[in-house]
Write a protein that binds this DNA or RNA. Sequence first.
RNA 1: GCCCCGUUCGUCUAGGGGUCUAGGACGCCGCCCUUUCACGGCGGUAACACGGGUUCAAAUCCCGUACGGGGUACCA
Length: 586
Amino acid sequence: MSNIRVRFAPSPTGALHIGGVRTALYNYLFTKKHGGTFVLRIEDTDQGRYVPGAENYIIESLHWCGIMPTEGQGIGGPHAPYRQSDRKDIYQKYALELVANGKAYYAFDTPEELEAARNEAAATGNHNFKYDTNSRKAMKTSLNLPAEEVQRRLDAGNDYVIRLKVPENEVVTFTDLIRGEVSFATSELDDKVLMKSDGMPTYHLANIVDDHLMEITHVIRGEEWLPSTGHHVLLYRAFGWEATMPAFSHLPLILKPSPDSYLTKSTIPTITDALTEEFFKKNEKQDFAIDREKTKNQILQILQDAKSISAQLKENEKDSPDKILLKEFLKDSLFGKLSKRDGARLGFPVFPINWEGSGDDSIYKGFSGEGFLPEAVVNFLAFLGWNPGTEQEIFSLTELSEAFSLEKISRSGARFDYNKAKWYNQQYLHAADDAELARLVQPLVEAKGYQVSDEYLAKACHLMKGRATFLPELVEQAPFLFGEVQTFDNDNIAKRWKPESRSIFEALANHLKAQPEFVAAPLEESVKAFMNEQGKKPGEIMPILRLALAGTMQGPGVFEMMELLGRDASLERLARAFNYFDAQIG
RNA sequence: GCCCCGUUCGUCUAGGGGUCUAGGACGCCGCCCUUUCACGGCGGUAACACGGGUUCAAAUCCCGUACGGGGUACCA
């Protein structure tokens, strides 16, 4: 395969969530593997949903992940512009071409008339009104209106849309690279709107025109597009572009995590509050006769039995209308496709980097903000729906692109697993370069008011990285490496420090003071020799040393800490601590 | 409702007719290591949705049912 061209085509309606990032990642990996071109196109044909800053956010996110496109919006290239709102005229032209060829038609029905048609159909028991081969016969279209009438309406500037004229009684079949052959009966397809009355194209038209013009060879997108792919194939045919139609691959969706993976005693109250809040907000226009406390208790009760949530949410004959409403809400909130809201309500990040939108509750912490390394996020995401078939779990971006293939993508939806994400981060943190970690953590160190050299910080990171899961923990879990001990674990001190301890520890301090070099390994040798000499067991000496140096029973090895702190600081800490210990038991 | 897609341990998955008494990873549990907390090492728990076919042989192929997911907008 040569001249492979793929595109990532998000719409700038807010922060790009992790599912979008994964789609971008797979597109990136596919082109890297085959030496192709990765295009970024912004699909902003819905003016109503445009969110300022989203486009920038998308680019920054891809940049953070290290999976930048090589052509497109914000980058440039031979097919500019890459923002669909800037390509408006192009779509108009192609839509008119379709009308001229009889593959599409004008429709003048107002939203009210469509609503009426829907209601009419519903009255006869058909709750499934479709604007299609049959129903269009009764609508105001250029297919059934007299030509003069159509022209008159166009001249008069009446609102209209252009719809695809779906052919009757055909079967559209295409091959999905992940799923194999997929077919749709055209009798099931509606006459999709191609051009909206505001003059903008819909996704369906714009995406076909652009993919064609931009010479896209492979469309790799989420499964939510699978049902409309029949329309898309029809459009390629209508334009006469079927010979160069891209190959389709529909990725499995990323699903919300299973509730029992995050529902614990400590999270249930918070999640209950968030859900209650959201439920009332969503239904504030509803005339509700039920009270908040009662609803909150109902939610709490359901969440508490995490294992049987789905059974509890099954609708029951005896359920009151508001109970049904609540159950439906919970079902949507707890199951199905991962959504932008899930991070806020369920307590884990769903965005790559932090998002600060305007308005209320629009600030979201991303993976980067939580202290994830981009390499870990990428590795984690790559494995959500794809697997190389080997037993290797840790892959660099380069390794991923070498191992990647569309055929290895699985077909079923993948549940988001935050535990796995954390594990990946821990692995990457553990393996990271000390100086690099120091660089990443430097802003936090400054924010805390600590003053240490780059070299010192790198050594501190070295000692801490094996014990941390998130970047900030490197610093937060070891304040004693950056300044005097602020708090002592008094319980442990009381347990281990005896009135007679002081003399032996002063002897030890003198022993340390006399060491030729203050380096971990020789220090350890020497202290062991001292303990032997004095007939003391490590358990009698080491914990005290640790408490004196760090104030806590947790942290890096005692001798490593001593080396890092240096002789003077170590001895000062010991002296100060022994006084404090005496005071504690005194 | 209708259409489309899917279904292997709690989760992510390997598997593409016999090598499967189903492999790996996360999580959980236990043991070891150990001056702490971790890391690490070792071990354990746990799955082919169900029913019919096809075949000498089915987790693997076919059909049905159930369940899950998506779509059903002048949203993408």
